[in-house]
Simulated scan of single mutants.
Amino acid sequence: MPTMEDTNMGSFIVFQGKVRNHSENGEVQAIEYSAYEELALSQLRKIVQETEEKYSVTVYAAHRIGRLNVGETALVVATLSSHRQEGFLATMEIIDRIKKEVPIWKKEILTDGRAVWL
């Protein structure tokens, strides 16, 4: 498995998904993420493995759970690849699949006191 020191890897891409201060529901104060952790970790590992094999890259991915305030990082995906094209494609695929396939739920805490499950 390639590492940061692997000279075959010419691209290192890092994505950080942060909590925004707004949504279609209003002004956001925080988001509370919850998950069925065992299943979420299993699914995340599966997505990473499949993406690594498909694009010949190395991926590190983590999604936080619990309460995160505006500006805090919820998701990190770091991708090592020989070239940037497969690195960007792999990174985008991982993000999309995490949002669709990993059982992580979020509740927006709005500044007007409402809480909205998404």
Score class of each variant (00 low, 15 high):
64 R>L: 05
59 V>M: 03
53 E>Y: 07
51 T>C: 12
104 I>Q: 02
69 N>K: 13
107 K>A: 05
106 K>Q: 05
21 N>T: 13
49 Q>K: 13
74 A>P: 06
76 V>P: 00
76 V>K: 04
115 A>P: 03
58 T>N: 09
37 E>L: 13
71 G>Q: 10
111 T>S: 12
68 L>W: 06
82 S>N: 02
24 E>R: 10
62 A>L: 15
97 R>Y: 06
97 R>K: 11
36 Y>V: 15
13 I>V: 14
101 E>C: 08
83 H>K: 09
7 T>F: 15
60 Y>S: 07
104 I>S: 05
56 S>E: 05
56 S>G: 08
49 Q>S: 03
52 E>A: 07
3 T>S: 12
97 R>A: 05
49 Q>P: 00
78 A>K: 02
90 A>Y: 13
61 A>P: 02
35 A>D: 01
71 G>N: 07
19 V>Y: 11
115 A>V: 13
45 R>W: 01
18 K>N: 15
96 D>W: 13
43 Q>F: 01
42 S>D: 14
79 T>L: 00
10 G>L: 08
113 G>L: 07
35 A>C: 03
43 Q>G: 01
82 S>A: 08
115 A>D: 03
53 E>M: 01
2 P>Y: 15
106 K>M: 11
50 E>F: 09
76 V>N: 04
62 A>T: 11
54 K>Y: 00
56 S>H: 07
110 L>Y: 06
14 V>N: 01
44 L>S: 11
114 R>E: 06
11 S>Y: 12
47 I>M: 04
55 Y>N: 03
14 V>E: 12
50 E>D: 12
36 Y>P: 08
74 A>F: 07
10 G>D: 15
35 A>M: 10
22 H>P: 01
112 D>L: 14
22 H>E: 08
117 W>Q: 09
51 T>K: 03
12 F>M: 15
7 T>K: 15
8 N>V: 11
85 Q>W: 04
25 N>C: 08
34 S>M: 07
18 K>F: 14
106 K>H: 10
91 T>E: 03
1 M>W: 15
65 I>Y: 08
110 L>R: 06
118 L>A: 10
34 S>I: 03
75 L>H: 00
118 L>N: 09
30 A>E: 09
14 V>C: 10
7 T>P: 06
45 R>K: 11
16 Q>E: 14
93 E>H: 01
46 K>P: 13
73 T>M: 05
111 T>G: 02
30 A>P: 07
9 M>C: 11
5 E>L: 12
70 V>D: 05
45 R>D: 08
34 S>D: 13
69 N>I: 01
71 G>F: 07
67 R>A: 00
6 D>E: 06
59 V>E: 05
8 N>S: 14
118 L>Q: 14
71 G>W: 02
24 E>N: 07
41 L>K: 09
79 T>E: 00
42 S>A: 11
60 Y>R: 04
63 H>D: 04
93 E>S: 01
